[in-house]
């Protein structure tokens, strides 16, 4: 194909192979419906789906549109649906996918597609804002740091790992059908403060999530836990918030 030129010397001992990507594309200026498009590129054993997308964008079709910033699984920009599951393109190695058939790449579900793999993230961030993702305290600020025991810190450690990529929220069948649902990520964001011993806003946040579009919409499908690129046990966090609401014990 087009891209065999500079591969051999760079690759060294790394095996290279042909990969076909089946991309779901949508250009709002020309298309009324999304369409599928296939590209075959030569990639290496060390490459990720993001590298294949880059190769297509840089060497074949510059109009291919997707988000990515750090490309190392920290910024949370490139969540997309790879072979039917929400994954970060920059953390999914091509060699781990079945390459005998095309790798399907689609935008995440439940959020309006703006172009190709880019979706409108505003509703997602609105949900996050509504749970007040900041420290709430009362009284005078201490002159030193707010101290916390390692045990208290460990209580919400899992939910501090969130990078807000929306892989969890857009994997949730409840969110697909009801955009009013806060979604797993907002609950993870709330969990991070509700169980923080230094925070005093737990009661308010619990009340927000006690809403009919709050934690009770969760149907424990575990899609979010499976999708999270940071390995956060999302469904467990939601369950802890549910139990905190039921037993009023944080």
């Amino acid at each position: 194909m087009t891209a065999a030129v500079a591969d051999a010397p760079v690759a060294g001992a790394v095996p290279s192979f042909q990969v076909t990507l089946r991309l779901r594309r949508f250009n709002p200026e020309n298309d009324t419906e999304p369409r599928w498009e296939e590209h075959t590129v030569t990639m290496h054993g060390t490459d990720r789906v993001l590298d294949a997308l880059h190769k297509i964008k840089w060497e074949i079709d510059g109009s291919l549109t997707f988000r990515r910033s750090c490309a190392h699984g920290i910024c949370g920009s490139d969540a997309m649906r790879i072979n039917g599951r929400n994954r970060l393109a920059c953390k999914t190695l091509l060699k781990d996918l079945p390459l005998d058939k095309p790798v399907t790449v689609e935008p995440i579900k439940g959020l309006a597609v703006l172009k190709d793999l880019v979706v409108d993230m505003d509703p997602f961030f609105e949900a996050y804002k509504s749970i007040m993702p900041f420290l709430i305290t009362s009284g005078n600020e201490p002159s030193r740091e707010r101290r916390q025991s390692p045990e208290d810190r460990a209580r919400y450690d899992d939910t501090t790992k969130c990078i807000m990529c929306a892989a969890c929220t857009s994997s949730c069948p409840v969110y697909w059908s009801d955009g009013q649902y806060f979604g797993p990520q907002a609950i993870v964001g709330a969990h991070r403060f509700i169980f923080d011993s230094r925070d005093e806003g737990a009661e308010q946040r619990l009340e927000i999530l006690n809403d009919r579009d709050g934690v009770w919409r969760c149907r424990t499908t575990f899609n979010c836990t499976d999708a999270c690129p940071r390995g956060i046990e999302v469904t467990k966090a939601i369950q802890e918030v549910k139990r905190a609401l039921l037993f009023r014990r944080v």
Binding site: R24, E33, N83, G84, R85, E106, A112, F222, D226
Partner: peptide, 15 residues
Amino acid sequence: PKAPAGTLYRGREGM
């Protein structure tokens, strides 16, 4: 959420 029909989400046991 006007999700256009794509492939089926490949959920696991939970879904």
